[in-house]
Simulated assay, not measured.
Amino acid sequence: MQLSPRIFDRALIARHLERRPSKVDDFVTALVLRDLEDRLATLLRPFPAAVMLGLDANALPATAASGQGEIRFERVNALGADGELPAFAQPGYDLIVSILDLQVVNDVPGYLSQLARRLNPDGLFLAAALGGNTLSELREAFLAADSELSGGAYPRVAPFIQVRDGGGLLQRAGLALPVADIENHVVRYANPLALMAEIKSLGAANPLHDRPRKPATKKLLGLAAQAYAEHDADPDGRIRATLDILWLSGWAPHESQQKPLAPGSATTSLKSVLEKPKG
């Protein structure tokens, strides 16, 4: 059996989360949960059995609402053994929601496949993850600083799932009617060091397995902050940080779902539609 590469140090991530201040302002999770409320409200169906996964189960809501009424969630901490599903209370669910845990999974296709198998027929999988160009400015700033100091590059910012890959991941997991979309946000900070401090306070400091083992030096941080400010500062001196929230949704196959037409079954040809009538 081929093992997936170890990208993230999940034990380190768990330690970072345990050390978070009790009253930390986790605005990213709050933003995602507000968006989740809006998305669930458009679904005109009940979800009797529902579970919500996240890196910190205590930060997840116990209830929400679809267009058909209240949803009660089993809340589960997703930071278990990597490559294995956390302990669920029951074998099947009508709704599985994943909140900001996919971006620290080493084997995303395998993990999604396991979650898909936990869905009841016509059950919904819905996930939010950091994706796209999230923290691209910080990544480029560290690349510039490392290049100037040592002539090389070191992994300091985690890779994120691209929206163009989202639909393929859902299909590979065996989910029907896959949809991937992205919400783009720009967050501003007084300076790059303020951004780095907030990332650390959220328990989201470098989670990579192959990260540099030595702490970043003052010189490196200074060079990164300088490169950041030179390329991504606004006229008022504040710097911009990209935050992209990737949303994925797919359904467990069911006979009631829409099916694509079989090849050759169309009754009208494209040629006849495009041809202009003569005269």
Rank of each mutant, 00 (worst) to 15 (best):
31 L>T: 14
16 H>Y: 11
273 V>Y: 12
28 V>D: 04
63 T>E: 14
63 T>Y: 12
27 F>I: 13
41 A>L: 13
182 I>Y: 07
112 L>H: 01
165 D>V: 06
38 D>M: 12
217 T>E: 05
148 E>N: 09
7 I>T: 12
177 L>C: 02
176 A>W: 00
21 P>M: 03
123 G>C: 12
122 D>I: 04
161 I>S: 00
231 H>Y: 09
76 V>S: 03
265 S>D: 10
39 R>L: 10
210 D>A: 14
250 G>T: 02
136 S>L: 06
43 L>Y: 01
74 E>K: 07
48 P>D: 08
15 R>C: 13
206 N>G: 09
207 P>C: 09
156 R>K: 13
45 R>N: 05
25 D>T: 14
51 V>Q: 04
101 D>R: 05
257 Q>P: 01
134 T>S: 06
123 G>F: 13
58 N>G: 14
28 V>M: 07
206 N>H: 01
223 L>M: 10
74 E>D: 07
10 R>P: 00
225 A>C: 09
124 L>E: 06
158 A>I: 10
78 A>Q: 00
134 T>E: 01
222 G>S: 02
232 D>S: 15
176 A>S: 08
267 T>I: 14
91 P>F: 12
161 I>R: 02
238 R>A: 05
3 L>Q: 13
75 R>I: 00
104 V>R: 02
127 A>T: 14
